[in-house]
Design a protein around this nucleic acid. Structure first.
Lengths: 142, 142
DNA sequence: CTGCTTGCAAAGGCTTTGCAGAACA
DNA sequence: TGTTCTGCAAAGCCTTTGCAAGCAG
């Protein structure tokens, strides 16, 4: 396997991705998607804002927030809520769960085969399933 | 089993509970504990504030926040984070998980026997387990 | 006395909103 | 030309903090 640099991975077809999800492909949305999908990762809104404007101003704070919310609603990315003061956006939407280090704030994927639920619980009446989040909170060992 | 009313349940020995957890039993803390442990429930800081001052002022906002944080650190109650803009405090600290209705904001317990994890995932190096939260998000059926 | 607790009000951090200008079809 | 999108700044919401006064032992 020859090395594929981060830079090369950036050259993915983001326009098609947006089109598939019924999202008008504006400059800002393309750039934000570029960042999110360069690799599977967990970024906060602030981190996205920072990265998208790293080389010149591309999008404002409002646009980043709006875009992330839009992407999440359309199913391109997943919101991960582990800390009341910050939402992470996960560009990996396949079934998997998370480790959250409460000391460092680091969020990591748990390989799905490592963690299996024994059957779905019976849902309360009148509701339907949206999603299941499993957060394994860890702290740095003394 | 003769009925025990909610009111009777309020007459629990909160002083002892605080002492067991190394918490100085002030008026405010006793009142807040009284509310939390009247029954297993999920309350936000704001709801606690409201209830504690229902019949005359007992505690300020700052004290309620400080006290809930203290109780959580000391293990009397558990923080449940399901919504980035609000933390719930759960007076049931036994192993169990939650349904969260994203439309109504209602948080409900899942009986533990209904949901079992198949083995712990291998923890990343250098960390130790803190807790595991499972949130089953549901929405009101159409 | 001495240290812990309380409470007010102000500050703080993250996110949303209103609205005018810009972009695109 | 009309609709959608962007962005600034202001507002909003929940939570934390600074600091003086209060309370307990």
């Amino acid at each position: 396997m020859l090395g594929i640099s981060d830079k090369d991975q950036h050259v993915l077809n983001v326009g098609e991705l947006l089109a598939q999800h019924d999202i008008a492909p504006t400059q800002q949305r393309r750039q934000i998607a570029q960042i999110l999908f360069a690799q599977p990762q967990h970024l906060s809104a602030d981190q996205v804002l920072e990265r998208v404007n790293q080389n010149g101003t591309v999008a404002s704070k409002a646009t980043v927030y709006n875009t992330l919310g839009l992407f999440a609603r359309k199913g391109l990315i997943r919101e991960v809520i582990v800390d009341p003061s910050k939402v992470f956006y996960d560009s990996n939407t396949s079934a998997h769960h998370h480790f959250y280090n409460i000391d460092t704030g680091l969020l990591q994927d748990i390989e799905n085969q490592e963690l299996n639920l024994q059957g779905l619980p019976t849902l309360p009446a009148g509701v339907e399933l949206d999603s299941i989040d499993i957060i394994v909170r860890v702290r740095t060992a003394e």
